[in-house]
């Protein structure tokens, strides 16, 4: 070890902040080098002077009581503080986004189901209406009348369809 390296690490050596092997090297160099020994001694003395002659201030009596009064039950950590912890914020944000996504998908799925049901019903309605139109033109035949009555019965089941009277109910037809 040279003097330059020794001088660089002297403070860390004094504070016990270097590895045991490096400490041994430093110690042997300081023991052997009068200049570094003098440097170390003066650093040590300065450190001791500061340690032994710096003023301490003391807490005023009753400081704990003052603090205790300030940290009443209202400032006690609550379970909701968990949600305000910064490191959990991304997790909470992702969880909320996930919940929003799930709710959105669920709503969309329900909407799609309604749409499918409506489309199915409308297709059936159109089919029946076309059949009725066809049957209306065939009421002169027995087969046509039977089909028309059958369709009328089907229409009665549909609350959205207004069922009008059949031609047989018309007094002017008699």
């Amino acid at each position: 070890m040279d003097c330059r390296k020794c001088a660089e690490d002297m403070t860390a050596f004094m504070d016990g902040e270097i590895s045991p092997s490096h400490t041994a090297l430093m110690q042997s160099h300081i023991d052997a080098c009068p200049a570094c020994a003098e440097e170390y001694a003066s650093l040590r003395k300065a450190a001791d002077l500061v340690q032994n002659h710096h003023r301490y201030v003391d807490l005023t009596p009753g400081s704990w009581n003052l603090l205790h009064a300030r940290i009443g039950p209202e400032s006690r950590p609550s379970i909701f503080d968990f949600f305000l912890i910064r490191r959990w914020s991304p997790v909470m944000a992702m969880a909320l986004a996930g919940l929003a996504l799930i709710f959105g998908l669920w709503s969309y799925h329900r909407y799609q189901e309604s749409e499918r049901a409506l489309r199915s019903y409308m297709a059936e309605y159109i089919r029946v209406r076309e059949a009725r139109t066809q049957a209306y033109h065939l009421t002169s035949t027995r087969e046509g009348r039977a089909r028309f009555e059958y369709l009328d019965l089907r229409d009665e089941e549909n609350p959205f369809v207004v069922v009008h009277g059949t031609t047989e109910d018309n007094p002017f037809r008699k």
Partner: peptide, 15 residues
């Protein structure tokens, strides 16, 4: 400031 520090410590100790 020491008082302020310890109030914060009490409130944030859970973190």
């Amino acid at each position: 400031l020491t008082q302020e520090t310890f109030v914060t410590v009490y409130q944030k100790l859970g973190t």
